[in-house]
Design a protein around this nucleic acid. Structure first.
Lengths: 344, 344
DNA sequence: CTGAAAGCGCTAACAA
DNA sequence: TTGTTAGCGCTTTCAG
């Protein structure tokens, strides 16, 4: 079995202690409780640690201290050919946010023949991570239920309903929609339609709810044109649905539940001979990078991914460190990105 | 420090051993070397393990065995607002490939005030992971140099030049370009231009090299129209460059170095009154999800992310387990996705 | 402020 | 085939 493992080649706390002429404990303290050391001792030990390149063995430290400094993140299973375009940016934010407080992100996914619940139990029982971060959370997400039952620390991107723990952070979608509609109303639009998609995903439902709230708030046509695209994300189907929407009551503005749907709207408008930005105002949601290439540039809502990640990590750490579980979710405002698609 | 850590609450190997009336070692063997146990003992112990939900503590096992079953992946730093769109899909593939052989992916990033080299050294010294996976690798990537110096196992997505270790996997870009150009030539195109971008990134250079190889191979105009977009990814600038390209020698086909650039080409064509697919053939590279919305649909090259991930993981494991470092890189073919943008 | 003792939970090596 | 012994490297506890 040999293998390449350079066992015993690393510098241990013992080595540093000997070199510094102190006990192992003093070296440990230099790292974990420096205030306990006499400044000159601290200096000497710290210098030696630096010079010798000593790093406490992660496993030994974890075994002894019970803390792993690792956060498990369960990536929602995703088709590699059609990945969630926000995934990369969100993970990026997570890594940065966790890194700043000394944690790393471990990607966890059920092993073959294992369901998500079992995968979680394995991580918990094997003490692989100190807590979980979840995304794409459903209102009554089984993962949340399970972790809450186990009493294991977690935080979720996406609100859960009242019966569930409120360890979540989410975007204030309704407010963002109100802002968007307010913007359109201010520019004189009264016939505003909504293009959604029947995915049943809660965050998509929120956008519809936000639209309805806007309709009420601004006293728009009580029965606005609502159209729902097919549940799957097939571009052709979306475009077709968008065309029907445009032909129907000829809205002057359409609020799309996502940038992806907005692209279908652009295509449909072109087919109908309408010019987005002048004949038709369009808004999206998510601010995918690709929106920059849309002509005219798309007005949309950017998710504050970094702020979400920070809040998630900070909440999770509170649970891990102090056993405090948040009593209420946290709603973060989306960033309105106003561009030309709603006209000059 | 109080905290929520349910210390001692876990089932240990001792508990199982007692319950089964065997020694700890026997329980350990049931998991790690089942063939050593008498079938009935194995049965009894395994059942108990199942019932009691025993999972070996990861840290303890790692400390003793020296193996972590964790692969460190260094995410290239990425602007959350404009993330690498392939990132999500690649990570997805990595997680799946590693998961199948019992490894997990740990996202590693330099801590504030730490450079990448130091971050690597920390992971190595702290024995946090068994090996590294790198992506977006440069020809003389300092990360590769560093890991090779340290003699630490790694595998890279992206070729390194001959002076460097050849522990890499890459896409056969030149071949993919030849295929693309062959396709265009077969449809009668002779004036084929290339739209690249002056990023200096090796994979972008490869695409240009592939284009030139195609020009030679098919005996096209010896001085084809080459245009290089601005180094940054600014859409407006790309579109402007694309327009100049189209105005210049009026190519009948343009090979773009990426889907992103191809989008600029679409925009430019529209502005120039050309119809992509009939007046002008266009190809891209990467097969971003968004290409599905382009009208006409874009002909492009899909990176075999899953196969790349599999190869990367398998090579890395060989290095970890047997100390074998590959003597040569592995080139994987890209998948040609032929769609309407090159005409009927 | 520093040191000594103990042991986290596991598996390698050896003994029975 | 199973059990015993030892110790991975660290930090917690308690003594000096």
């Amino acid at each position: 079995m040999g293998g390449h493992r350079p066992r015993g080649r690393g510098v241990t706390i013992e080595d540093v202690a000997r070199a510094a002429g102190v006990s192992r404990q003093t070296v440990s303290n230099a790292l974990n409780a420096p205030y306990r050391l006499k400044p000159e001792t601290l200096d000497r030990v710290t210098t030696l640690i630096e010079e010798m390149g000593y790093r406490p063995d992660q496993s030994a430290r974890s075994l002894r201290s019970g803390t792993r400094r690792i956060i498990a993140y369960t990536t929602p299973e995703d088709d590699p050919a059609n990945p969630n375009p926000l995934m990369g940016g969100f993970l990026e934010s997570l890594v940065a946010a966790a890194g700043e407080v000394g944690y790393r992100i471990l990607l966890v996914r059920p092993r073959p023949g294992q369901d998500q619940t079992q995968a979680f139990d394995e991580v918990i029982a094997a003490r692989t991570a100190d807590g979980f971060l979840l995304s794409d959370v459903l209102r009554d997400d089984p993962r949340v239920v399970h972790l809450a039952e186990r009493g294991f620390p977690f935080a979720a991107f996406g609100r859960t309903d009242a019966a569930q723990p409120q360890s979540w952070v989410d975007v204030d979608t309704v407010q963002a929609m109100l802002d968007l509609i307010g913007l359109l109303v201010a520019r004189g639009h009264r016939k505003i339609a909504f293009l959604g998609s029947a995915t049943g995903l809660p965050w998509m439902d929120d956008r519809l709810e936000g639209f309805r709230a806007g309709v009420r708030r601004f006293g728009l046509d009580a029965s606005p044109t609502l159209e729902i695209a097919a549940p799957d994300d097939d571009p052709a189907e979306i475009t077709e649905t968008a065309r029907r929407l445009l032909r129907g009551r000829r809205p002057s503005a359409v609020v799309a539940a996502s940038d992806w749907l907005a692209m279908g709207l652009y295509a449909a408008a072109r087919q109908e001979g309408l010019t987005v930005g002048t004949d038709l105002a369009v808004t999206g949601f998510n601010d995918l990078p690709i929106t920059a290439f849309m002509q005219p540039a798309l007005t949309t809502v950017r998710l504050p991914l970094r702020r979400i990640a920070d809040a998630l990590v900070s909440r999770l750490l509170q649970t891990i460190d102090d056993g405090v579980t948040p009593q209420a979710g946290l709603l973060l405002p989306g960033d309105l990105i106003v561009r030309d698609s709603i006209g000059g």
